[in-house]
Design a protein around this nucleic acid. Sequence first.
RNA 1: GCGGAAGUAGCUCAUUUGGUAGAGCGAUAGCCUUCCAAGCUAUAGGUGGCCGGUUCGAGCCCGGUCUUCCGCUCCA
Length: 484
Amino acid sequence: MANDAQLFQDIIAHCKEYGFIFQSSELYDGLSAVYDYGQMGAPLKKNLRDAWWKSMTQMHDHIVGIDAAIFMHPTTWKASGHVDNFSDPMIDNKDSNKRYRVDHLLELYAETLPEAEGKILLDMMDQLLAANDFDGLKQLIESRQIKCSVSKTCNWTDVRQFNLMFSTQMGSVAGEADTIYLRPETAQGIFVNFLNVQKTGRMKIPFGIAQTGKAFRNEIVARQFIFRMREFEQMEMQFFVRPGTQMEWYSYWKEHRKKWLESIGIPADKLRYHDHVKLAHYADAAVDIEFEFPFGWKELEGIHSRTDFDLKQHQEYSKKKIQYFDNDLNEDGKPIGNYIPYVVETSIGLDRLFLTVISLSYQEEHWTKEDGSNDSRVVMKIPAAIAPVKLAILPLLKKDGLPEIARELMNECRPHFQCFYEEKDAIGKRYRRMDAIGTPFCVTIDHQTKEDQTVTIRYRDDMRQERTPMAQVRAKVLELLSKI
RNA sequence: GCGGAAGUAGCUCAUUUGGUAGAGCGAUAGCCUUCCAAGCUAUAGGUGGCCGGUUCGAGCCCGGUCUUCCGCUCCA
């Protein structure tokens, strides 16, 4: 475990040194649990997002993609349950470090009292809650000597409001402003657009709506590099199904999503399912696909059967009918008719997927050279199809016309995939630099190129080299990239 | 949020009782070199996280603060 911790530190340092990930606002000492993607990280992240998007939309007949706004009508979050479930005053016991919802703590205590006395207490609590009087609530708890069930002490912190959602104001004049939340999940942007997409896209159930985008959560404890950030990017797909068929589709997506993760190069033995025992207020089944990160098994993707909870809530709050007329025939030969669809959700964190790929790719290799001396390298074995740079083009020497030939090849290849040109330093050093950012292929132009128009292709993973006609480089790299 | 540890150059780290900061790697410019890091020359880069206190004098002692890591807690 100590080694894994060191490995994780090394990965974080490498990400910074080679421009994958910087801490946000580092110039000003950083902003807690917020990170920026650098010149290597941004394209890698984009490639992962594109791979997901393609697999979900282009490769499925019945899934379409949208891009909903981060700002949404405030009622959205009342309907979704986020306002009520995540804005309760909390209090911690300093000895057990256990956290309680203040209302739960008082209600539990009231049950131990004679009925009339309990009712008085709860009335007082309701008044204080309504007035947001946190000091008063704490005094109430302390005056009754209410104890923590774990530590049996009355040593409490101040009462604090825990707000999951970040808020801001809409409208340029402060006085007229309404509170607007930054979405804590992208899913609601899909639910509120269900009718729009279903009608304009002539979608027939079962069908899905996919979306990628930023979400924001005011995590109490946000840690472990980009694993848990306050601003992060989700890739979600909501699949709308006929009530009663949700478990079939749940099983389908559970299996399908794990296979996709394996298809982009994640070994099956580094992935596992973790069924939720305690379900969220909206779900009737939920499973995590976990990955073995350097700091342990953690959730990478969640598959939830969300029932008709969300659409039903939005129907109620918006007072608009959110239903689907199913023309398929039932056993009696009649159309199945109107219903609120059930939903199976797949939700993966793009940043977590990024961390997964980085964790798997980072390798320190040591070996003994033919002359007996030691050699080593740090190499990012990023799958070629998602690597930020695909091909490095390197003249062996920066003279004798070699750079000119290299530039020709550069011009030929760059419209097709990301290339990198470098003529500085010894060739070995340049190979090492390309290894460090995960460039899968390098070609070197030498004097022989001038005679027979062949170049050396050098492969990142095994450092193998082979001679290839320069005219075939472009096609060869494209072919290798299509394999992932 | 609680407890513990840490913060010195882009990176990894030195500076052993308080006396105005160094190395290796890396970077940049050039030289040399016909295929796998660590050849030569030169250059750049640090208000020691930030603020305050003690002191004749603070990277070092004290307080606060920010950030990171570890454990606990939480995670719809």
